[in-house]
Design a protein around this nucleic acid. Structure first.
Length: 344
DNA sequence: TCGCATGGCAGTGACACGCG
DNA sequence: CGCGTGTCACTGCCATGCGA
């Protein structure tokens, strides 16, 4: 990522010049505008990746939840529950860890896409090879190749994701008489078995993922029916922002499935779905608006308005044009309109 | 109640260096 | 030459506190 040189020595935050909210929002999202317009202009918004519907609606942690016993997110009558992975160390000790950040999100998308490409529907176990090497794999999921730090992080997050217990609860189950109630849900854990080489265990330090594979759990394999199509080029642009990845997947899915004339989502609902652990709703609101602004640059035809109460969604052309849809080219992004809305 | 300023913490990327 | 490791700067998420 190119870093913008600063004229003054601004390592001391107090020395930074005063910025209006609009300027700050602009500074955060403007780098995306040219790139977004380029992708739309060149017709490069096309399906190349997929994500299961449940995971487009519910979010993994942005940061390490550390010692939490479980992680939960709610969207309408669906709840995502993640129990931490139990991670073996070389010395035989076990530690707990949640998958978090961009890596597991991108990996889930990559995995879903791989399964879809295999096109298997015979119900037999699906085995996904993780690539010739870790670098190869990282290129596939759009992570820039870096040094050993990056590779270790990816391996760590893969282990966390593969071993974590993921459950989708259905909260719509009606209550019975005398206070009785029904609990309904299903497992969505990623793998039923796996074989992962750890970089540190390699004798020569080469090709740490050679021979690594994941056998996809039947539940996860089933979840890719009707998976949401995403544009790989957009994912690459948003990859360093987990919240933007979540908003992008959710927005594409909502517009993909939208049947009603309009749909409203309150700030409370958005916070339950996307919010990290903000202590105040207004803090979440500010962060969400900025990130939504960045995402909308890649989906300029999404008819979405930010209101005092939340979001107002209207039926929109699909993000990924399908056969028969009109070409998206030529749709320029109206940044002025969205800056106004983001600062409402 | 809300917007805003400020700052801490943690994750991430770039880079230099050492090693085989 | 490729990989691992450590360091530093940058960035995003989030908290605290103040004033309108």
């Amino acid at each position: 990522m190119p870093s913008v040189p600063n004229e003054d020595d601004d390592r001391t935050p107090s020395a930074s010049p005063k910025e209006s909210p609009a300027t700050r929002t602009l500074r955060k999202v403007l780098p995306h505008m040219d790139r977004a317009n380029e992708l739309v202009e060149q017709g490069r918004i096309r399906a190349g990746s997929y994500i299961p519907v449940e995971l487009a609606q519910l979010c993994l942690p942005y940061r390490d939840p550390k010692d939490l016993h479980f992680w939960e997110r709610t969207n309408g009558n669906k709840k995502l529950l993640i129990e931490p992975a139990l991670l073996p160390s070389r010395d035989g000790s076990i530690r707990r860890g949640f998958p978090f950040g961009s890596v597991p999100r991108l990996f889930l998308i990559w995995l879903t896409t791989e399964i879809k490409m295999q096109g298997r529907t015979d119900g037999q176990p699906i085995r996904v090879e993780l690539g010739e090497s870790l670098q190869d794999f990282m290129r596939q999921i759009g992570l820039t190749t870096g040094g050993g730090t990056q590779r270790r992080r990816v391996m760590d997050q893969l282990n966390r994701l593969v071993r974590a217990r993921i459950t989708i609860l259905d909260l719509s189950a009606e209550g019975g008489a005398e206070g009785s109630w029904r609990d309904q849900g299903r497992q969505l854990s990623v793998a039923s078995s796996w074989s992962l080489w750890h970089a540190g265990d390699d004798d020569d330090g080469e090709a740490p993922l050679m021979g690594s594979y994941i056998e996809v759990s039947p539940e996860f394999a089933r979840s890719i029916d009707g998976a949401v199509p995403l544009a790989t080029d957009v994912l690459r642009e948003l990859q360093t922002h987990p919240m933007r990845l979540d908003i992008y997947c959710w927005l594409v899915h909502r517009m993909y499935r939208m049947r009603k004339r309009e749909s409203r989502v309150t700030w409370h609902q958005l916070e339950e779905q996307f919010g990290g652990n903000y202590s105040q709703t207004r803090q979440f609101r500010a962060a969400f608006k900025t990130n939504l602004l960045a995402v909308r640059m890649y989906y300029p035809r999404a008819r979405i308005s930010v209101t005092k109460d939340g979001l107002l969604l209207r039926p929109s052309p699909k993000h990924i044009p399908q056969r028969g849809d009109l070409e998206q080219r030529g749709d320029k992004y109206d940044i002025a309109r969205d800056i106004r809305e983001a600062n409402k």
